[in-house]
Write a protein that binds this DNA or RNA. Structure first.
Lengths: 391, 391
DNA sequence: GGCACTTCCTTGCGCTGCGCAAGAAAGTGG
DNA sequence: CCACTTTCTTGCGCAGCGCAAGGAAGTGCC
């Protein structure tokens, strides 16, 4: 929102992408002048975001050798909290988004947002003190399913927890003393995939999330596309599912009502494939070569493919990343998904543009942290400002 | 692409939106300092884009009176050429996008792009010389159906004309001596609606075009969303149509195969509603209170609504503008469309967020000119550069 | 060792463009 | 003619980039 120095951001981005890299190369990659590179490197090094890594690149036979710079991952941390239905996932990431510590905290009283967030904040502070006390935390990102008002840092409505208008940012900022950013989990995951995951630095991507909720996030050149009311990517109630299934929304055939974890697990349970309606059981069964289980997950992937194909045609991203249990675990599902998308979509350049998510659900904290990292990458020099607490 | 001075652009935008307006007000609207407003106004006035309009605003009772500035519409022009199946529509617009002159030029030999474009260019030059010789043309915008490479100014593929890889920009620039910008017609219309039409300055909008081709364009805060391969908004082959209808693309139920002008006119013809398969005949019949014709167009509006609803949910724009014969001409169709979208979509805030297009097809030149105006609005100070010809 | 030569990095300078603050300008009312 | 109010302009300082000159750090040749 406030890209004070677009040059520093581009520079940091280039270093993140290209590992240890000479200043000259950065200038070529970013289009900046060598002078600007030097100055911005100095500024970022002063903030502890970059270091010189002498000798990390081979000498090229002529001229003065490089003095490569790289991201300084040893001095700073970013924290992430993902709010799920039954627990919070906490994570501490370095500036490259690598998990340095993590912890799962079950909700004691899921109906009490203040208590849940306070506990998460306290455990996060303790996690930091116990494991990485020497590293300075720069901020905290929060990802939650549901409708998030990013500007205000308020969780307007959480689908499964039933929370409403929870001032997540202020609660956590007060408890941790860190600047806090909040976003929806689909967007957070999308950004994480782009920064550190499957979508390796593609300029535009769509992330399609299929769990108990079904949601999509769109990222284009400029960043996350939120839409007028933060509702962009609402694929849950598109009529792509089974027309015989009624949705709580009042209509029939909604995608979410058909392929959500809960719905599909029940379907497998009723078909006698698994002994209880649990999607993880279904995944385990398929992984253990249960043919019926695999067939069910492949069928689900085909339905998910309809949404992916539609997103390809409408948004035309470089890649679509899909987070769905079967697709991420079983090659059969991923193959079915890819084939179906390539056959259905006009804009899908090749099956390889459909990617299974690279993050397991146990590291959703990465996505949460990505929300904060995203902001730091976008305006690194903003860290010069004394404290951003409670902004 | 090269927003040299974002301040001047914001300033010009504010003046465009708010008519004659005092500098102080501009400062408040744009967030710029009064000093910056003064300086940028001076710069833009020097380029002939703004004028002072003394006395155009009432005195407020106290203090020094305003010296309002407004867009100078009498000195400059922008030209537009829209490439349709059988003819080109030429238009000369002032800086507010108002049509000052226009002309329809039938193709002499539709198979010869060079001849068609040369004729259009020559007629455009003559139109200018005959009607508005005193006004300086700043540039030329071109809108065409099909796949356009905006960067290169090349019409990669035109759906109905069958052209391929036509270097439209270079051909027209050489013939007219003007800087030329080319874009797809859906995007051009979308921008025109946003700047001068129904979508009056909404920050984000989707434009859904239903003619012989079916296409959509997405505009968000940052500008037109093109997608990775300039294919964003490809709704033509979504399976929202009649599953019994086969599409040349090889699949069935495609939206375009079902509701395109041609398909729907044939449908009405076969049903005996009109004596020949012409969509304008169908529109005329409905306008003349032919009940069967109206019913057919209402049905078409309902199918179009499926696509509009889907676009609402996925992109979540402020408004969706629909260009379709029935919807733009008949209140019944517009009402049916609005009701259906509001009932189907989750993200559509109210039926009033669905807007029939405000431009008739005869002024598609407006859309073409908007392509060039868009660029001028985005970086008005770029006009300081001597000549942009053939860039 | 000294000297070209190449490539990499830094420094000084000038430019653009903004915000801040002081003040000039142009009205009304007493 | 003088407050008073609001609007606009001007001088100054600051940030940040590009340009160009020059310093730095290696190799290779004599």
């Amino acid at each position: 929102m406030n890209p004070r120095s677009t040059a520093a951001s581009a520079l940091l981005g280039a270093v993140l992408r290209h590992g240890p890299v000479a200043r000259t190369t950065i200038a070529r990659l970013t289009g900046l002048s060598p002078a600007a590179v030097t100055r911005n490197c100095a500024a970022l090094a002063g903030l502890g975001l970059l270091t010189e890594v002498a000798g990390s690149l081979p000498y090229r036979g002529m001229g003065r050798p490089h003095t490569p710079v790289d991201v300084e991952t040893g001095r700073h941390l970013v924290a992430g909290i993902h709010l799920a239905h039954e627990f919070c996932t906490l994570a501490l990431l370095d500036l490259r988004g690598r998990v340095r510590a993590r912890l799962r905290v079950p909700h004691r009283d899921p109906d009490d947002p203040v208590e849940v967030l306070a506990t998460a904040a306290d455990r996060l502070v303790r996690l930091h003190a116990e494991h990485l006390p020497g590293q300075v935390p720069l901020g905290l990102g929060v990802a939650a399913g549901g409708w998030v008002d990013t500007e205000a840092g308020v969780l307007v409505e959480h689908a499964s927890l039933g929370w409403r208008d929870v001032p997540v940012r202020d609660l956590l900022a007060a408890r941790t003393g860190l600047p806090v950013l909040v976003d929806g989990h689909a967007r957070a995951l999308a950004r994480a995939e782009q920064l550190f995951g499957a979508a390796g630095h593609h300029e535009s991507l769509v992330h399609l999330f299929v769990g108990n909720v079904v949601d999509a996030a769109i990222i284009t050149g400029g960043g996350a596309h939120r839409g007028a009311r933060s509702a962009a990517g609402g694929v849950a109630h598109l009529a792509l599912g089974d027309p015989a299934i009624e949705c709580p929304c009042g209509r029939a055939g909604c995608l979410e009502a058909t392929v959500s974890d809960r719905a599909w697990a029940w379907r497998a349970y009723r078909a006698g494939v698994i002994p209880r309606p649990s999607i993880t059981d279904l995944g385990d069964a398929a992984a253990a070569r249960n043919g019926a289980a695999t067939a069910l997950l492949v069928e689900r992937a085909r339905i998910v493919a309809r949404a992916a194909a539609m997103l390809f045609d409408i948004v035309n991203p470089d890649v679509v990343v899909v987070t769905e249990l079967g697709v991420t675990r079983l090659p059969e599902c991923a193959d079915a998904l890819r084939a179906e998308v390539a056959a259905t979509s006009r804009a899908c350049p090749s099956p390889s543009a459909v990617l299974p998510s690279s993050f397991g659900l146990d590291v959703l904290g990465v996505a949460a942290g990505a929300v904060q990292l995203d902001a730091i990458y976008a305006d690194p020099l903003d860290l010069r400002n004394p404290i951003r607490l409670g902004v």
